[in-house]
Nucleic acid binder design. Sequence first.
DNA 1: AAGTGGTCTAGACCACCGT
DNA 2: CGGTGGTCTAGACCACTTC
Lengths: 235, 235
Amino acid sequence: MAVKYKEIAERLEHDIRSGTFNQVKKLPTEEELMKQFNVSRNTIRKAVSQLVHRGYVYQVQGSGLFLREESSADYINLGSLRGLTQDLSAKSIETNIMDLCVLEADEGLAAQLRCAPGTKLYYLKRLRIVDKEPFSIEISYFKKEIVPYLNEEIASNSVYEYLIEDLQLHIGFADKVISCEKVDASSAELLHIEPDNPALIIENTVCLANGTIFEWSKSIFHFRKAKILNRINFK
Amino acid sequence: MAVKYKEIAERLEHDIRSGTFNQVKKLPTEEELMKQFNVSRNTIRKAVSQLVHRGYVYQVQGSGLFLREESSADYINLGSLRGLTQDLSAKSIETNIMDLCVLEADEGLAAQLRCAPGTKLYYLKRLRIVDKEPFSIEISYFKKEIVPYLNEEIASNSVYEYLIEDLQLHIGFADKVISCEKVDASSAELLHIEPDNPALIIENTVCLANGTIFEWSKSIFHFRKAKILNRINFK
DNA sequence: AAGTGGTCTAGACCACCGT
DNA sequence: CGGTGGTCTAGACCACTTC
C-alpha cells in the first residue's frame, strides 16, 4: 500500500477504533494532520473523506472533525468486504460447509451473473454460527473463470481474504438487495426457527474493478439475531 | 447552488437518468468534461466521485468512466433524502396522515434522540399507499426545537422538502438499522396482511450537519412489496 | 506509444464557527 | 476577529488499458 491517503486513512481508522480520540471526540485539525503526516492538505482531505464515507467521523465547516457515536450493538455492515468476521468481532464465529462443488449455470444464474448458460461456477453453501447459535445461511456462486480454485479450507475462513490477498482480485462495487420473506422449511431447520417465520435476505451481485460480475450470493439471516447498520452521509 | 462540482454532478446525473449515454454506456473523458464545463480537473473528479458514490458510474483506470447497469425493479434507496417520491417515481403515491401532534419524550424516545425526557417532539404517523395498495407505515419524531412547525398539508407531501427548502435545515448524516420482525396486529390491518407475517423494518436516526440528532423514525414495510437496493463501492 | 484515470503538491480565496 | 473547513486552480508525474 504505497498510497499515502489510504495509509493515513487506515492509520486514523485504527486509532479511532482503539479509542485514541474518545476523550475529546474530535480529531486533530487538518493543519495538524498535514504536519503529522507531512503531506499536502488535499491528501489529508482525501484520507478524511474515506473516514467520512465509512461512517467514523463527520466534518463541520469552521469547527472541526468529530467522531460519530459508536453503534452499541453488533450489526452487519453492508459496506465491509470482510463480512461477519469483522462486523461481529466480539463474538465467536464458526462456519459449516454444507456444499461446495462446480456446476454449470442454468438460465436463472446466467441472468444474475450476466453470462451464458453452461458457464462453470463454484457453488458454495455455508451455515454461519455465531456464539454457538445458527445465524445465517450463505449461498454463493463464483465464476470459475475468475475464481479458478476454491476448497473447504478456504471456505471455512474468509473467502474474500483469499480473493484479495491470494488471487489478487481487484473488487470494485456491488449491488445489495435487502428484503424479507417467510423462511422455507429446510432453512428454518438449519436456523432453528419455526417454518413461516420471517427471514432477512440479502442478495448480492459483486463486480471487479473493471465492471465484470464475478459473484452472486444470497444470505438468509435469523430474523431475531441479525440487524444491518447503514451509515449515510448527505452532501 | 453556487458550487461548481455539485452543479456538474447534478447535470451529469440528470443526463444519465434521461438516457443520454445509454448508447455508449460511457461518459466523456475527464479532459472532455474539463473543456465542456470549463473547470479544472480536480473539480471534474470531485463531481464524478459524487456520481460514483451514488452508484451511477464506475471508474476504470486507464480506460474510462462507465455507466453501471440500471436496476430494473423499483427499489427503496437508502441514500436518498427525498424518500419514496423519488425512488418509486413511476408509481402513484398517496399518503394518509394517521396522527400528527406534539408530545413530550418518554425515557425511550429521549434515549433515541439523545435529549432530556419531557423534550417536546412532533409525532407523525403516516400510511404510504403505492399504486392504490398499502406499502408502508412511517412513524416519525422530530425535535420541536429544530422543527418548530408541522401541519397535515406539509406531512401529506415531502416533509424533507419542507425541512430543506423552507426551514433551511442542513442535513448531515443518518444511521439506518434494517431488520425484520413479525408484524403486530394493528400494522397488519393497515398493510392488509395477515398478523404474524414478516415485515421489513428501517429505524432511522437523522442528524443535522453540525451533529445534532433531530429525528428518529421507524418505517414498517409490506414484506412482499418493499425491497431495498444499496450500491456499494470499495476502494 | 498514446490515451485515460490515479495520486500528490502548493497556493489562493471563500464560508462558517466560536470567542 | 482568528481558527477551521470548503472550493477551486494549475501543473507534475505515475499506473493501467488499449492498440
